Amino acid sequence: MMVTNLCTSPSSTITLRADEWVNITTIPNKPGTKYWVSAYVNVTGGTISLSMYGDISASQHVSYQITAVNAGAMSMTYSVVSGSPTVTVTSMLICTFAEYQANKTLLDSIEYFDGDTMPRA
């Protein structure tokens, strides 16, 4: 099975804003579908909390499963835990959870990549 990256610009840099949903792709979600999201999150100047991941105070790779509840584009938001953080997201992979499970060994061995080398929707 092949993995299709649903992130339209996986190597672009997206700046998030506190308590405001920011689109990380333009492809609409299918409500009820489970997705796998993987990205590099760079946090400077404070600590944030991603509701689907937890607290982050440095640059790190994050991965999580999420079930779409609406047909809007995939987005991310954070809340400030401390400081005045600046948060950017790059190297994104968004695929269905079924594709992730079918290719879990390969995707987990890559750990983190720019996403640009994958077939995209």
Rank of each mutant, 00 (worst) to 15 (best):
N29Y: 08
M76E: 13
V41Y: 05
N103M: 09
L6R: 06
G83C: 02
T15V: 09
L6C: 07
S9N: 12
T33K: 13
M74R: 11
V41M: 00
N23S: 13
K104N: 09
M52Y: 13
D116T: 14
V87G: 00
P85L: 02
I66V: 13
P31I: 02
S59V: 10
S49H: 08
G54Y: 03
N103S: 12
G115D: 02
V37Y: 14
G72D: 15
A39C: 11
Y40H: 10
S82Q: 11
S57F: 06
V43T: 03
A98H: 03
P31T: 06
T26C: 10
I94G: 10
S12K: 09
L106D: 13
L106V: 09
T25N: 12
G72I: 02
N70Y: 00
T26F: 10
T33A: 03
M52R: 14
Y112F: 11
N70S: 12
T77G: 11
C95M: 09
P31D: 01
L6Y: 14
T8L: 08
T26Y: 06
V80P: 02
L107N: 04
M1I: 14
A68T: 07
A73K: 01
F97G: 07
V69P: 00
N29T: 14
I24G: 03
N70H: 04
T90H: 00
I94F: 08
G32L: 05
V81I: 13
G45N: 05
T96C: 12
T96I: 10
A58F: 05
S82H: 08
D108W: 04
T105E: 15
G115E: 08
C7P: 01
A98L: 01
P31F: 04
Y40S: 10
S79W: 00
G83N: 05
D108L: 04
A98I: 00
F113M: 07
T47E: 08
L6E: 09
T88M: 03
M118L: 14
T8H: 11
I110G: 00
E20S: 08
I48S: 01
V69Q: 11
Y40L: 12
A18E: 14
T13K: 07
Y78P: 06
V37I: 13
M1G: 15
Y112K: 06
R17S: 15
I56K: 04
D19V: 04
V37H: 04
A73F: 00
T47W: 02
K104P: 05
L50N: 03
Q101I: 12
P85R: 00
T25L: 01
T25I: 00
Y35V: 08
Q65Y: 11
S79L: 08
P119L: 11
W21F: 12
C95P: 07
T4W: 12
Y112R: 07
I94L: 10
D116H: 05
S75R: 15
Y64A: 07
S59L: 01
V87E: 05
R17Q: 13
E99H: 05
S51D: 12
A102D: 15
T44L: 07
T47S: 09
T44A: 07
Y64H: 09
D108Y: 09
Y40Q: 10
M52F: 15
N5V: 01
F97M: 14
S63Y: 11
A73Y: 04
S84N: 12
T47H: 03
A68L: 02
T25Q: 08
T15R: 06
